[in-house]
């Protein structure tokens, strides 16, 4: 909490406290639809934050984070469906496997000096291979998908993530809050500064005694493990998993837009990004439907245009601009 508090000045703390309070109370007045949108926002805050640690702080571009969501989701769902192992336990093997994928990608990339866009290509390749692989793993349903059955009797078993809408709302909120806290803590830690050094100039970082390989490995391990937990949430919230849907590149892109728009390498950037983009997507669906535009991709076109405008106006992200304009961080003059 102290680390998070330290990010803000007095005014920022008041805004943060009020926002948290409003979100905690929101389900009492909000419609089911609004609660589901907010749940989705929290999910994107969480996974966006996990990606932000790796890209925003350590400067390693991953365009294949859907891999970790998918692996996390599939492992925990399969353990539940086939062996009745609940997600609280299943999350451990899920995280372990996703982090192993992360370790493999990191080791290949960082040990052999694959950097920048080439590293990004490596992450895409792994996600694509895994997608194709999962198409052929019959235990998890292959291309036909894996479904977590809806069982009336189990409804309310929150310890098995078989809860209702409110349960998932608060679970997602908790995950998002933890991700923000973890980011705030890491950002102020020794490791956080090592990451920044590697991001800014790897040769200079090494000249200051930083083992760049280890720092980058820690980044991808933490990021992939965190993202896998998001995958577990995703699996039990939506109850259906398809390889094409879980591992597709557009899923990886979707997850990184929030941090980019909100502000890379900032604690609240991914939060602001998710709160902007998820509702924007929903609004665009509504608008295109109301206008009777049924052309496929119409939503994507509007979405893309809006992103271009935002990035043109605030190239370093919305949060740095917003916090400065509203005077939420730093000393006020």
């Amino acid at each position: 909490m102290k680390a998070l508090w330290g990010e803000m000045n007095g005014r920022g703390r008041v805004v943060l406290a009020v926002a948290v309070l409003l979100l905690l109370l929101a389900p009492t007045v909000a419609t089911r639809y609004l609660v589901s949108v907010l749940t989705l926002i929290f999910y994107f805050v969480y996974v966006g934050q996990a990606w932000n640690l790796m890209m925003g702080y350590a400067g390693q571009l991953s365009l294949g984070h859907a891999l970790y969501v998918g692996v996390g989701g599939y492992v925990s769902a399969a353990l539940w469906v086939h062996f009745g192992i609940g997600p609280w336990l299943g999350v451990f093997p899920a995280v372990l496997l996703a982090a192993s994928f992360g370790a493999a990608i990191g080791w290949l990339g960082f040990r052999f000096g694959i950097e920048g866009v080439y590293f990004a290509l490596l992450t895409i390749a792994f996600a694509e291979f895994t997608r194709i692989g999962f198409d052929h793993i019959d235990v998890v349903g292959g291309a036909g998908g894996l479904f977590i059955p809806y069982e009336e009797a189990r409804l309310g078993e929150w310890w098995n993530l078989r809860g209702g809408q409110l349960f998932f709302y608060y679970l997602a909120f908790g995950l998002a809050a933890i991700a923000v806290l973890v980011t705030a803590l890491l950002a102020r830690s020794r490791l956080g500064y090592q990451w920044r050094a590697v991001r800014e100039d790897e040769a200079a970082a090494r000249a200051l005694g930083i083992d760049a390989f280890r720092a980058k490995m820690k980044a991808i391990l933490i990021s992939s493990a965190m993202t896998a937990v998001g995958g577990v949430f995703y699996a039990f919230y939506y109850n259906s998993l398809f390889p094409a849907q879980m591992f597709e590149m557009s899923r990886s892109i979707e997850l990184i837009l929030g941090p980019i728009v909100g502000g890379l390498g900032t604690v609240f950037g991914p939060v602001i990004g998710a709160f902007l983009l998820t509702p924007l997507g929903e609004i665009l669906i509504g608008v295109t439907e109301a206008l009777g535009i049924n052309a496929p991709g119409a939503k994507a076109v509007f979405f893309g245009l809006t992103l271009m405008v935002i990035i043109y106006l605030v190239p370093t992200g919305v949060w740095p601009w917003l916090s400065k304009t509203l005077g939420l961080t730093g000393r006020r003059s």
């Binding site: 920044r196 991001r199 800014e200 090494r206 005694g209």
Partner: peptide
Amino acid sequence: LTPDAVCRRGIGRTFQIVRPFPGL
């Protein structure tokens, strides 16, 4: 030894063309 290992043993260096961390 690698540059970081050399530094950890007690040798600090500067670069001919300066390389501060620009964004920090």
